[in-house]
Write a protein that binds this DNA or RNA. Structure first.
Length: 547
RNA sequence: GGCCCGUUCGUCUAGCGGUUUAGGACACCGCCCUCUCAAGGCGGAGGUCACGGGUUCGAAUCCCGUACGGGCUACCA
């Protein structure tokens, strides 16, 4: 079984057939957190063996999303540089020795494939890279040759059509289908001759029928035992000369010295097959930890029809990477059953595979929203303004130049909105009134209810008078004191008094705090807005009198 | 069909045979605070631990069935 003394090395191995999915992100987070907690290495490997469905754009997109989440990897495309990679290079070096002399071949291939890797910024760790499977075909071939030599595989000349027919037949008869191992019985000499002659063939793994059940202890699911008869002589190499997933994943994990395979539980059933490949390859078997899937609100596997499913979409919807990371961490893992706010450092300090749940988890946007708000509330004014600037720019409210000129003013917005939004996307609508100068868009219902109400006109008149006083210190405290005095003098309920002013200045009966808002809008603009509202009230009362 | 996996408040989870009248968080409801909305504080409702059998003095916790859900069963990954 596996050698527990090996330095911890884990990998996240996405297939670039789409954007980084929420489920994939969680897998990446767990791998990353585990590696960081253990002081091991986190490797990014791109499984782009299927040229039809893979694209460079997707690879770049995945990398961008991982970075956005704050995940860094020690080896892989665009791996981080500096002390980090030096350390992992050392670990990798030690590891390739431990993995056995088989990885000697890998180094040679790596050297020749190096130029291509560099174009993609692949880190060249001896014996492990390149980290794009499309650049590792030579490695897979070598490993296949080894298996051919050791007699662990055999060529199969059955055509896809034949196999298909047999499978269908079995289905009709409600019989369990498995490859009948016809070609396994072929005399070695005959098989070799037919291969030599160029006859189309696949390579199948010769399942060791006498081996007994394949038993492994999954770090999440516990001990799992599969009868050997249950396993098919599955295909390692296709007739077109390309390797299959179950083969390359083992070759890569073995050559890269992966000690723990943490991945989605859709691979749980593949694991026994892969263990057989490791054994055929005479490689140490990594530990496995399978993660249950993430479901949508209807209990079905999370997919596009549930709305946002890619990390990028959450970024574009105004979620903070810290909040998404925290939320995803908790989707299937718990620190102690009580902690909810768990920043990255905390996650790394406490992460344990033991505390991963076996049950599939339903993605809950409301909890994410709450977490995002929590992170917004504690991020601070400076970080907030930096993060929200793109949203403000998109809404035409401000730009980098104005921000630079009035950083303090912008940062003063933070306490007004932080506890009132769940996402950054909600900010522009909430603060538009602060940017609209001498006038403000008035919300109809609010006008009806608060401006066309008894006393509203006199409230605005009083406010205008008080705020016109140039001796008044233009701070929200002084403004509040002055206006409260005004309400008292008019013998008006503060609520009514303030609501009229709020609608006049902020445009609606629901807004961030009034006095702070007035302070930010400025004296001149506030007075202009009060005047405009006063005139509106006048026109309205004239109209109603006439009618 | 076969094999494998799962099932604790609506949701995420704690629980590892007695300390559990099953704890926390989100959401929900109420009260307080209050210039509106939030935020915050306090309180509440919500789970016969999927169901049925065992084992045990004692089971959410161990075992076996059943149901439901999921995965694999490809010359996809």
């Amino acid at each position: 079984m596996s050698d527990s003394t090996r330095p911890v090395r884990v990998r996240f191995a996405p297939s670039p057939t789409g954007k980084l999915h929420i489920g994939g992100a969680r897998t990446a987070i767990y791998n990353w957190a585990f590696a960081r907690h253990q002081g091991g290495s986190f490797i990014l490997r791109i499984e782009d063996t299927d040229p039809e469905r893979s694209s460079v754009e997707n690879t770049e997109q995945i990398i961008r999303s991982l970075r956005w989440l704050g995940l860094n990897w020690d080896e892989g495309p665009e791996a981080g540089s500096g002390a980090n990679s030096t350390r992992s290079a050392g670990a990798a070096g030690a590891n390739s020795g431990a993995a056995g002399n088989t990885s000697g071949g890998a180094s040679a291939t790596d050297a020749s494939g190096g130029a291509a890797t560099d174009a993609d910024g692949g880190a060249a760790t001896p014996g492990c890279g390149p980290y794009l499977q499309s650049q590792r075909f030579g490695l897979y071939r070598e490993q296949l040759e080894r298996l051919v030599a050791s007699g662990n595989v055999y060529p199969c000349f059955c055509s896809p059509e034949e196999l298909d027919a047999k499978r269908r037949q079995a289905q009709i008869q409600q019989r369990n289908y498995g490859y009948d191992r016809r070609c396994r019985a072929l005399p070695a000499a005959e098989a070799a001759a037919r291969v030599q002659a160029g006859e189309a063939h696949t390579w199948r793994l010769k399942i060791p029928l006498e081996r007994g059940p394949v038993v492994f202890s999954d770090l999440v699911y516990g001990e799992i035992s599969i009868p050997i008869e249950q396993l098919d002589d599955f295909i390692l190499y296709r007739s077109d000369g390309t390797p299959t997933y179950n083969f390359v994943v083992c070759v890569d994990d073995a050559l890269m010295g992966i000690t723990h395979v943490i991945r989605g539980d859709d691979h749980l059933s593949n694991t026994p097959k892969q263990i057989l490949v490791y054994e055929a390859l005479a490689q140490p078997i990594p530990q496995f930890a399978h993660l249950s899937m993430i479901l949508g609100g209807d209990g079905k596997r999370l997919s596009k029809r549930h709305g946002a499913t890619s990390v990028e979409l959450y970024r574009d919807a105004g979620y903070l990477p810290e909040a998404l990371l925290n939320y995803l961490s908790l989707l299937g893992w718990s620190l102690d059953g009580t902690s909810t706010i768990i920043p990255a450092a905390e996650l790394v300090a406490n992460f344990s595979l033991r505390r991963i749940s076996r049950n599939p988890a339903v993605f809950d946007n409301q909890k994410l929203d709450w977490l995002n708000q929590t992170y917004i509330k504690q991020m601070g004014a400076a970080a907030f303004i930096d993060a929200v600037l793109p949203w403000l720019e998109a809404a035409g409210l401000t730009d980098a130049a104005r921000l630079a000129a009035a950083r303090d003013w912008h940062e003063a917005i933070y306490p007004l909105v932080a506890e009132r939004v769940h996402t950054l996307a909600e900010v522009p609508a909430l603060v538009t009134y602060l940017f609209s100068g001498a006038s403000v868009a008035l919300e109809e219902k609010s006008v009806e209810k608060c401006l066309y109400a008894d006393g509203a006109a006199s409230a605005l008149a009083r406010a205008t008078e008080l705020l016109s006083d140039t001796k008044l210190d233009w701070s929200h405290e002084a403004i509040e004191a002055a206006l409260r005095g005004g309400a008292a003098a008019l013998e008006m309920k503060p609520k009514l008094f303030f609501q009229a002013i709020r609608v006049a200045v902020c445009g609606a009966m629901v807004s961030p705090p009034l006095f702070e808002s007035i302070a930010l809008v400025g004296r001149e603009n506030t007075l202009a807005r009060l005047l405009a509202a006063t005139q509106l009230i006048l026109r309205n009362s004239e109209a109603t009198t006439r009618a």
